[in-house]
Amino acid sequence: MTVTQAPPPLPMRDKARDRTAEAAAREGVGGLSPMLTRLAAERATGVLVREGGALYLAGGLVLHAESPYAPGIGTLLTAGGVLPAEEWWRAAGIAGDLPGTARLLLAGGRLTPAALEICHLHALYDAAYFALAPSSSPGRFHYGPAPDADGPLPAVPVAAVEREVLRRRALLHRLWPDALLDGVPLLRSTPVAAPGVTTRQAAVLSLADGVRTAPDIALAQGRRVFPTLVEVRRLAAAGLLGTPPPPGAASPPSELPDVDPHIALLKRVRDALEAL
């Protein structure tokens, strides 16, 4: 006689935990940086320096953000040919600070206010993404003098910046759940049935040489870093981009198992499932 046993229950996702994480992401209180939350609450003025970059704060607002991984407003404006680099640096040299530089360029009529605002917001959010990335060392805060109130560049509430950073993390995670790709050298891989790529993606692929990281590629193009991160994740999901093998490993062309597209595909599926 056969006894049918009830199959073991399938593992369930912890929906409560997922919901809490989602709610936290929505509220903008996801423990991005407890220090930042505290500084915003006390409306401190100064610079918060973290491993991935710095946030300039005043009265609960983020005035500006910088990161070595994100091209700044000057790079964005000059690389696209909107402004000759000498002109940017001359203005920066005379003014000494970012709002002053912006004011000089506006007064010179070389830029529309909207162009400056758009570039500034892009640079701010891109740098904030890296500045608020998980870090191993604690941040430091340097109190500073209050900036002039009527600067030409828009400031953003701290909570809005936190929410946007979390939204961007979630967006990238949905595309391809491997946050390491934000900072490691990238190498294009050669799948057998390569899907078509957009011009932007082709430009990213052509610069992925096994040495450059995603921020390096953005800098080389004079482009914003976040769209580059998006393209890198999409290309990784398509199997067109990966990380080079560690130096000790066999050189990639002689590595037999990866040549079989089915195995490469299965590996990608496995990696994606494991990363969920």
Partner: peptide, 14 residues
């Protein structure tokens, strides 16, 4: 047409 795997990254695609 653009978008093929061989398409080059021209600067005008901003």
């Amino acid at each position: 047409g653009p978008g093929g795997p061989g398409s080059t990254g021209a600067a005008d695609d901003a």
